[in-house]
Amino acid sequence: MEIKKIIGNVTEFFNEFVAPVHKITSIEDAENGWKLTVEVIEEKEYMKKYAKDEMIGVYEVCLNQEKEISSYKRRELRFRSSINQE
């Protein structure tokens, strides 16, 4: 149930400090903790107001061995309707 705790910690942090989590697309065991890729819907109300497509922020998140967020960085900002090719 380690992954459930990781997902819970990241979701709680992003909901409070960044933006509501849309989905977590990857969780990887890293050298000194965990590395995740998290997608959030950026500025939802602003985009609705101007009838624009929602923007998705893609974040790289690092957790330490205690499953606490040690860093995060936005890697990409894209329209929700755009095709995501990796």
Rank of each mutant, 00 (worst) to 15 (best):
F79L: 14
C62T: 10
K44E: 05
N84L: 14
E43C: 04
E45D: 14
I56Y: 00
R80L: 12
R75F: 12
C62Y: 13
K49T: 10
F17L: 09
N32I: 11
Y46M: 09
E60N: 06
M1W: 01
E39I: 03
N84E: 15
W34M: 03
R78F: 05
D29M: 11
F17C: 07
Y46R: 05
E76T: 12
T37A: 07
K4N: 13
I69F: 06
A51F: 08
I27Y: 03
E31W: 08
L77D: 05
E66V: 07
S81E: 13
G33P: 08
G33E: 05
E2H: 04
K73V: 13
E16G: 09
E45W: 04
K35R: 12
I7V: 15
E68Q: 13
Q65K: 14
M1V: 09
S71T: 13
K49P: 01
E68I: 09
I27H: 00
L63R: 01
E43H: 10
R74E: 11
D29G: 08
R75H: 12
K73I: 11
I6C: 00
E39L: 03
M1A: 09
D53T: 12
E54W: 05
V21P: 02
K4R: 11
F13G: 05
R80D: 08
Y46W: 05
I69K: 04
K5M: 15
V10L: 01
E45Y: 02
E42A: 03
S70Q: 15
I56Q: 00
F17R: 11
I24D: 02
E86M: 09
E45G: 03
E68L: 09
E2N: 09
P20T: 05
I24F: 04
K5D: 15
I83T: 15
W34L: 02
V58H: 02
V61E: 02
E39K: 04
K35F: 06
H22G: 04
K73S: 11
